[in-house]
């Protein structure tokens, strides 16, 4: 029944590899830019805070598919030549995911009470020591479950890049389907692959959440 998948497995897996690569770049860039965005969102300097907040609010209130589309069609005007779909997709995903990761970082940092930091200072710890032994470990543990969840969402969202012709997993499946006309088997296979990856991811996220709750740090 799944012979259609077996016949085209190399072509399909090639698409899945593109999906994984796009996810990896989107996460890497999104998390790094997200850290900066998170810092910008807690900045007391209005010249930093206002533009960053505008950016975050704008992007978070626009569907991802529009960001991908818009960036793909606007870039040639700015750059003077069309970008290849993969690069264009990576950049749009970084711009999009950084706002979500930024909010996770902001919340993690703000979840630590002022007096917990004061308590550390009052024992003579320096700012650097307080950050290293208290702030960062606690914030990281609190953020980890949301970061894993957001990573899963990013992984799922990468399939939207098919709209600009990127040959990722879903796009390649649809190409095969056009030739073989076996939609149920083909897209069923895609669904199973996505499900396995995301299910494992959400289990990992749950694990860290439970662990944090037991230690009463969430």
């Amino acid at each position: 029944m799944f012979d259609v998948v077996a016949r085209n497995i190399n072509f399909l897996m090639g698409g899945f590899l593109v999906t994984l690569k796009l996810t990896a770049f989107a996460l890497g860039g999104g998390i790094i830019l997200g850290m900066l965005v998170g810092l910008g969102r807690i900045s007391r300097n209005a010249w930093v805070y206002q533009p960053v907040t505008l950016y975050v609010n704008f992007i978070r209130n626009v569907p991802l598919i529009l960001v991908i589309f818009w960036f793909y069609f606007v870039m040639p005007i700015i750059a003077g030549r069309p970008l290849n779909p993969f690069l264009s997709a990576v950049i749009s995903f970084i711009i999009f995911e950084a706002t979500y990761f930024g909010e996770i970082f902001r919340a993690g940092y703000q979840s630590i009470s002022r007096d917990l930091i004061n308590a550390a200072y009052s024992t003579g710890l320096t700012y650097g020591q307080t950050a290293r032994f208290i702030l960062v470990p606690i914030a990281f543990r609190r953020m980890l479950p949301s970061m894993i969840t957001q990573s899963i969402v990013t992984f799922q969202d990468t399939s939207l890049a098919f709209v600009i012709g990127l040959q990722e997993f879903v796009r390649r499946t649809s190409i095969v389907d056009n030739l073989e006309v076996r939609s149920i088997q083909l897209f069923g296979f895609v669904a199973v692959v996505f499900f396995i990856f995301c299910f494992i991811g959400s289990k990992i996220s749950r694990h860290f959440e439970e662990k944090g709750r037991r230690a009463n740090i969430l």
């Binding site: 009470s113 007096d115 917990l116 308590a119 550390a120 009052s122 032994f133 230690a215």
Partner: peptide, 12 residues
Amino acid sequence: GMVFQRFELYPH
């Protein structure tokens, strides 16, 4: 030394 209303022990 300083002791706070809400204890402020390091939870981790």
